[in-house]
């Protein structure tokens, strides 16, 4: 399998991540992040434009993360009690609850840098321009950054992307390794 094969592949199921309870029209509905993305479920913690930027950036870090519902996954988890939060950011001593401060700060700073440097949205950048920003984030050398530590923001978004793409039963299938669950996460989280 080549990376291009991977890029073209459509993940249509996402059972291993488990369904999250999204509020649709006042009704709590269990959906996977991929389903929430496909259904265009409204965001509740992130502003829509911030969610779009998060998804675009994540898609650059791991192609397929946007369609896998990374923005809906993060949006949902920012709305739960920090103790119950399923984002990896909760491990990191530098990131304090409530975690939306970290994400909003990072997304806003990314937008400011892109706007300042390229005068267009992240999603409209050429691949080389996205790479330049990404590498500067990881190296911590990005200029005019006003958010949380840049490498930390890069790592957390990358981790969220890996979660929704490869941290699931379907992700394991994609990697051709057995999931071997004792108890498959499928209930309301």
């Amino acid at each position: 399998m080549t990376p291009d094969d991977i890029n073209r592949r459509k993940f249509v199921r996402n059972t291993g991540l488990g369904a999250l309870a999204f509020n649709i029209g006042g009704v709590s509905t269990l959906l996977t992040p991929r389903e929430a993305y496909a259904d265009g479920v409204k965001f509740t913690s992130l502003a829509a434009e911030d969610a779009a930027l998060l998804a675009a950036f994540a898609d650059h870090l791991l192609p397929g993360a946007g369609a896998a519902g990374i923005a809906h996954f993060v949006d949902h988890q920012l709305g739960v009690d920090p103790q119950e939060c399923l984002l990896m950011c909760k491990y990191f001593p530098e990131i304090k609850a409530p975690f939306d401060v970290f994400y909003n700060g990072g997304i806003g700073a990314l937008r400011d840098v892109v706007t300042h440097q390229y005068k267009k949205p992240f999603g409209a950048l050429a691949a080389a321009e996205k790479d330049a920003i990404t590498n500067d984030l990881w190296q911590g050398s990005i200029e005019n950054w006003s958010g949380p530590p840049p490498p930390l923001f890069y790592m957390m978004v990358r981790s969220d992307a890996v979660d929704v793409v490869y941290g699931t039963k379907d992700g394991f299938d994609e990697l051709n390794i057995p999931y071997m669950a004792h108890i498959m996460p499928k209930e309301k989280w």
Binding site: G16, D81, P82, Q83, L86, Y91, A181, M184, W189
Partner: peptide, 13 residues
């Protein structure tokens, strides 16, 4: 649940 994502609930938050 058998999931590295779900496992985070076992840890401190």
């Amino acid at each position: 649940y058998s999931s590295q994502i779900w496992a985070r609930r076992l840890k401190w938050g």
